[in-house]
Each structure stands twice: as structure tokens, then as C-alpha cells.
Design a protein around this nucleic acid. Structure first.
Lengths: 336, 336
DNA sequence: TTGTAGGCGTTATCAA
DNA sequence: TTGATAACGCCTACAA
């Protein structure tokens, strides 16, 4: 592999000059610079990242850990999220390292240690934040730059993006109430998750707004997957007095719920209304197309990276908390 | 940040001894080793990866680039694929770096250069392989270890995993023919892709097996997304003599095609049969559930990593080409 | 405008 | 069984 030494030797220059020419310092003769750039290109020279890292004490790398509960982990939200992270990182000459670990597991902890203590990354992206999230504390303690999608409830300062759920939920539930629904169920996720907290809360606020008393038997928890949504919906539909509308914590759950409804002989959009949250690409093509609160996932990811890079560079951020308003997309799954 | 020096100083040992104790060499006194391990743990010491890399001339990192055509990139196949890569890499103490670039773009090329020439990675995972794929040539020339899902048609030796499509396609089409279908359409992808080549070929072989003459007007290309499948299916359904069955290159395409069928007032599974390929999680919960050729995505990803790591270590691989048989899952979308 | 030299934190060779 | 030391490739303060 060609090193800076090889280039220097080939040109009868010192490595200093080569280094400075390549880095665009202005105390290099133009003719020299040109020559250096051309030659190093021709020789296929690219600086060794490890050496540069060691010397500069930074890695030009950020990390992200996928919250995989099970071997199976098929959620289009994350493919888009990672594409956004990767793209934006690359556009800024940063690398993204990705791993996977079950939330709150020892594997997750081990990864953070390897990355943070081993100085493998300059910063970290956190999402699927838990209400009590050791990651937030850990990263804060170690002064490792991080940004999070959804804030935890710990008393540390928060930098990142947060989806504002209440407004969207209020709109959604008002729409459903307007269609004549009064028994509106909710299929949620683990109570330790911030998104569950927010979306469940939004659901309740939405009910209050239209003066529906919430019925605890209509609130049920699943696991953010189609399978979970399917099972939960079956349970709801088996009630003596079943709901006429179901609001789901995410689109995958809603897809499973629609499946259960169809299986019970109900026509979704006519006999029962079902809505999701996320706006994944499939949601426009389900049968019937799914009403959902659409989040600009790619953009959120991209934004997070931009914020993280500023943080790493030590720039001051103009906005330390970006709020995103999801957009209600009314589609046939809620009738109308 | 604590370095090996700090640990050595704290114990009044040389850094050599500390290093060797931690790396499990057997020429260190047991008592010393214990002390070292305990102390370095207590001091929160983790070896600096950059320094280790530089010294050992290896990165313990593998790379993967997502083939993102558009900002939007929501495909559950890839979330599961990346989870498999990340998990398996982490289990072997390797890191995975992920980026995104449009296939065959200059951005893709730039990333490879940064990673390969900059010695940022020890090896690379390639997928969505093109028939003529410069990546394969590039990596081979530079002697960079890589494995690929689906082989290109270049004359270089291939190491990786390949999905055997013919058998599954033959089964699928025999099943459809058996149901009375004779006008069986195919919605494919870009002709430069290996998967398109394979699956399209499988489709044709399948038709031959049941002695149906293929009708070129029933073969159409889309872009692997629900939207693409939707448009393509609309076109097919608008034909004077439309198909009664549609085989799709992947599940997302099939989801879009089902949408178009429903929109035309057809009941999928009764008036028209539609099938996909991949077996993503959603496919079990579409309305109606989708017949598909199911691939064990997580396992494939995991297998690829294992193969790549062997390659990097210089072990000889027992199998240089792993063939995977997708499994035909008959579901209601094809009637029956 | 260019060159010399020291050091980032490790690991590995060799000597003690 | 342990320690001194060189090197990995790069950047940069300082000298020429």
C-alpha cells in the first residue's frame, strides 16, 4: 500500500511538504502542490485512517446501534434511517459504524464500551430511547458527543430531534370521532420506551379533546411488529364489546392489526378504522392504504447527523432541540 | 482517557507486560495477569483501536454500502440484512461500517477508495451485484477480501452466497399453472442486476417447464419499490388481454402490484394471483397474505460475515460458494 | 517555501 | 517472567 513516504520519495520531497500540499496549506508553492496532488493520485495514495486518527485524536466516525429484539428484525423505518445516517455522514467525510444489540442488554453495553472507551467513534446516535436510559447517562458522564431521537426522562440536557406527537394524535382522533367512532382502541409498545410514552399520551390527550372517556380494556401492548399487532388486534376484536377504531403505535403494528381484522371478516375502512404511525413506504400500498402519521425519516436521520457533527466540532448549535411535526395522512383504512 | 501507560504506571509494571497480560500470552505470571486485568478494568482501560490498528495493520472492521437509489430507501430486507451483518460482526469483535450510495455512482467509487485505499476496512460485503460490476474487479485487483451475495458475471473467482432461483420459480409457476393460469406476467427490475437476471431467467424456465410460450408483452420492468410495482401492474392490467397472474421480482414490488389490482376492482387471490420474492416480515400480513419465495435474510447476512472473516484471517473456507434454496410459501394471494 | 524530528498508543522483537 | 525500544503512518511545531 502506498504511504505518504512513497509519494515523497517519488518526488524527492519531504513528507511534510506532501502532507501540507494535500491538506491545502497555503505555504506550499503552487507548482509543488499541483505536482503532489497529481502524483499521489496517480500512485493511488489515500491517507491511512488509523495513523491520521491516532495523530489527530479523532476518528471521523460516528456510531449507531440497531435495537434488535430478535434475530428477525425487518422494519423499513430502520433501512431508511440508516440510509439517512450513512448518506449524511459520507457527505461530510465521516464514517458510520453500525452494530446491533437487544435494548438494555449486556451486548449493548459492551458495544458502547468498545466504541467509547476504545475511542472508536467521535460520537453516537441514540434512538428508541428508553424513559430511564443508561446510555444517556453513560455518554454524558464520558463527555462523548451524542444526539438522540426522542429524549429520555433523565435530568440531563438533551440534544437531538423529537417528534411532537400530541398535535398529530389529537388531529387523528378528532378525525375518527368525527366519523362517528367512540370506541377507539390503542395498541402500544413496551412502557419503557419513550415513543410509547409519547404516543400513548397523545392518544389519551386526543380522547380528552373529544370528550371520550378512555376505557382501559381498549389499551393493549404489543412489540412494534406486524405479528405483535396481529395478536393484539385479535384480542381486541374478541372483546364482548370490541372497538370500532384502532390506533397503533407504528405502521408495522397497524399492518398486523389490519390482517387480524380482515381475518375476522371485517372490511377495514368500512367496518373498522385502523391507523398507524411512521409513514413507511409500504403504508401507501397496503390494502386498504393506511392512515398514518408520517415522519420524514430520512430527513430526521440526516438532521441528527448534522447536529452530531456540529457537536463534535465544538460548534455551537443554533437549535439544540429540533421538533418535528408528523403529518397526518388520511387514507382509506379509516374510511371517509 | 486512560492508556496502557497509565495502567503500567499504576502497577509499576512495564507497558509490555500489561499488553501481554491483557492479550493472554502465557509468559506472564498468573498473579501479575490477574492484577493487570483487574486494575485495567477498574481504571476503565480499553485499548485505543487506532493505535492497535496502526501497529497491527488491520482494522477489525468490515464495510457495507447500501444501494440507495433515492433519498427514500425503505426496504425491510435491508434492515434485516444489516442487523445480521452487525450482529455477527459484533459477535466476532469486528465492527461494521455502513454507508449509502447510488449503485454505480461516483459516490460509491469514492467510498470504496476511502475504505480500501485508506485501509479503513479489512474486507467488504457486496450485494445487489450487477452483471458487470466494477466493484468485483476493483476489490480483486487490490486483493481486498470480499464476499458477495449473488455473483457477478465477471470471470473472477467468486466467494459468497447465492440464492438458487430456478427451482423455486419452477415450483411457483407450476403451482400457478396448476391453478389454471396461462397468462402469467413478470414484473422485474433493472436488467443490469444479477437478481433480475436470475429471477427473470427462473420465470422463463418455469414457463417452459409447464409449456407456456412466454409473451413479451407480459414482461415489464420496475425498480424494486412498491411504487414501481404499482405503476407496472397498472400497465399490465390495462392491456387488452391482461394477465391473470403476476410474478414479481421482490415483495415490495408485489405489494405495489396488489395495490394496483385492488384499485382496479380485482380481488387478489380470486380474480388475479400475485406472488413476490424475499419473504419480508410484512408479507405474512398483507391483505391477502402474499405468496412468496422466502429467503432467510438474517442467516444469509450472518453467513456472509462468517465467510468474510475467514477470508480475512486467511483460513481456507470449506465452502467457497454457499447456495441457498428459497422456500416457496403459498399464501392466499395466489388463491387455492 | 521546504525539511527535521517528535510523538500519538499499541504491539512485537529482542535482551535482561 | 519482565523490560527497553523500535516501528506502524501521519501531522505539526519548529528550524532552516
Amino acid at each position: 500500500m502506498t504511504t505518504i513516504k512513497d509519494v515523497a520519495k517519488a518526488l524527492n520531497l519531504s513528507i511534510t511538504t506532501v502532507s501540507r500540499a494535500l491538506d491545502g496549506y497555503d505555504d506550499v508553492a503552487d507548482s509543488t502542490r499541483e505536482l503532489v496532488i497529481e502524483t499521489s493520485h496517480k500512485m493511488g495514495y489515500t491517507p491511512n485512517r488509523a495513523a491520521r486518527q491516532l495523530r489527530r485524536q479523532q476518528t471521523d466516525t460516528i456510531g449507531y446501534i440497531l435495537p434488535t429484539e430478535k434475530p428477525q428484525f425487518a422494519d423499513a423505518f430502520y433501512s431508511e434511517f440508516i440510509a439517512g445516517l450513512g448518506d449524511t455522514a459520507a457527505a461530510n467525510n465521516f464514517d458510520l459504524i453500525v452494530s446491533a444489540a437487544p435494548p438494555d442488554s449486556s451486548a449493548e453495553k459492551a458495544l458502547y464500551e468498545r466504541w467509547v472507551q476504545g475511542r472508536k467513534v467521535d460520537g453516537v446516535i441514540v434512538n428508541r430511547t428508553r424513559l430511564q436510559d443508561w446510555r444517556v447517562q453513560y455518554l454524558t458522564d464520558r463527555k462523548t458527543p451524542f444526539v438522540s431521537l426522542e429524549r429520555s426522562q433523565l435530568a440531563v440536557e438533551f440534544i437531538g430531534v423529537e417528534t411532537e406527537t400530541n398535535q398529530g394524535m389529537i388531529e387523528l382522533i378528532a378525525y375518527l370521532a368525527n366519523q362517528g367512532h367512540s370506541r377507539i382502541a390503542y395498541i402500544g409498545a413496551s412502557p419503557y420506551l419513550k415513543i410509547e410514552y409519547d404516543r400513548h399520551h397523545g392518544y389519551q390527550v386526543g380522547l380528552q379533546e373529544v370528550q371520550i372517556t378512555s376505557d382501559p380494556s381498549l389499551v393493549i401492548r404489543a412489540n412494534l411488529t406486524p405479528e405483535g399487532g396481529y395478536q393484539a388486534a385479535r384480542q381486541l376484536l374478541g372483546l364482548a364489546n370490541p372497538p370500532t377504531a384502532i390506533v397503533c403505535v407504528n405502521d408495522l403494528t397497524a399492518i398486523g392489526a389490519m390482517h387480524a381484522a380482515h381475518e375476522s371478516g371485517l372490511k377495514v375502512g368500512r367496518d373498522i378504522a385502523i391507523a398507524g404511525f411512521d409513514g413507511i413506504a409500504d403504508s401507501a400500498h397496503t390494502q386498504p392504504p393506511l392512515t398514518t402519521l408520517d415522519q420524514p425519516v430520512y430527513e430526521i436521520a440526516s438532521r441528527l447527523v448534522t447536529m452530531l457533527l456540529s457537536l463534535i466540532k465544538g460548534d455551537l448549535l443554533s437549535e439544540r432541540q429540533v421538533k418535528i411535526q408528523p403529518k397526518l395522512l388520511i387514507r382509506p383504512s379509516t374510511g371517509g
